[in-house]
Amino acid sequence: MSNIISLLSGIIFAIGLGISGMVNPQKVIGFLDLFGNWDYALAFVMGGAVVFNLITFKFIIKKNKPVFASELKLPTSNLIDKKLILGSIMFGAGWGIIGMCPGPAIVNLVLLDSVVITFVLSMTGGMLVHKLISK
């Protein structure tokens, strides 16, 4: 049952990304172009999502018992270290170049565009490199 929920969550997530405009790299780069021709529309994506989850997560964490699992698996680290900062800088730089973060890139695979496929393969490669060197 939990796998069906995950599948459903993925489908809904993709639809949200598409409707919001996050799948459009030009729009994302326009949003990041704060000092140029700034397109602020995508600020409402994160805004809407955070407001919604502020309410629902609070309720779910208070209830503290997921329907199909024994416990909530929440991140426990509060560490603000070099890894967090350097990793986020690298991610932001890549995001600024291509205008796609991991979710929209995976959704855009349905376009069967060779550049999108190259990006996703390279992203997967970057994850594997991290896995190798962090052993």
């Binding site: 991140p75 690298m90 291509i98 990006f119 970057g126 994850m127």
Partner: peptide, 19 residues
């Protein structure tokens, strides 16, 4: 695509998350 992919892939894992 290749450079951005490596940065996003490696960076999100090193920084433990993305958007």
């Amino acid at each position: 695509a290749i450079i951005a992919g490596l940065l996003v892939g490696f960076g999100t894992r090193l920084g433990s998350g993305c958007t």
